[in-house]
């Protein structure tokens, strides 16, 4: 009889699924913005981990502070990445990562 009491494992399974979906977006999608969304999913998965471990391991609020930093960094990265994507669009008129291949061996 499995345990239906909501515990740490439930949250970790959600984060693993988010991670897997994010990874899938990253490896299969060609659109740079889609890849960015995949990265955001992975970062969210990591954040759920931090906060869940924090609650169930009785680790104070360190995990929550860490997740604030992660959110900050995610925002910074998204800003830079989108600026680069817009710039690419201005130059190439496409944001599909594999159509942009001037640099080849």
């Amino acid at each position: 009889m499995p345990n239906f009491q909501i515990g740490l494992t439930h949250f970790l399974v959600i984060s693993s699924l988010l991670f897997g979906l994010g990874l899938f977006a990253v490896v299969t999608r060609r659109n740079a913005i889609m890849i960015l969304m995949g990265i955001e999913l992975i970062l969210n998965a990591a954040n759920i981990n931090f906060i869940a471990f924090n609650k169930y391991g009785q680790l104070g609020v360190d995990g929550q502070v860490i997740s604030i930093f992660v959110i900050i960094l995610a925002a910074a990265e998204a800003v830079i990445a989108l600026a680069i994507v817009l710039n690419i669009y201005n130059n190439f008129k496409t944001v599909n990562a594999d159509e942009i291949d001037n640099l080849k061996e």
């Binding site: 990253v26 740079a32 890849i35 960015l36 995949g38 990265i39 992975i42 990265e77 830079i80 990445a81 680069i84 994507v85 710039n87 690419i88 130059n91 190439f92 990562a97 942009i100 291949d101 001037n102 640099l103």
Partner: peptide, 13 residues
């Protein structure tokens, strides 16, 4: 700009 895009995508992942 292509270099930057590749860098940011690989780096972000």
């Amino acid at each position: 700009s292509e270099a930057a895009l590749k860098y940011v995508i690989y780096g972000g992942v």
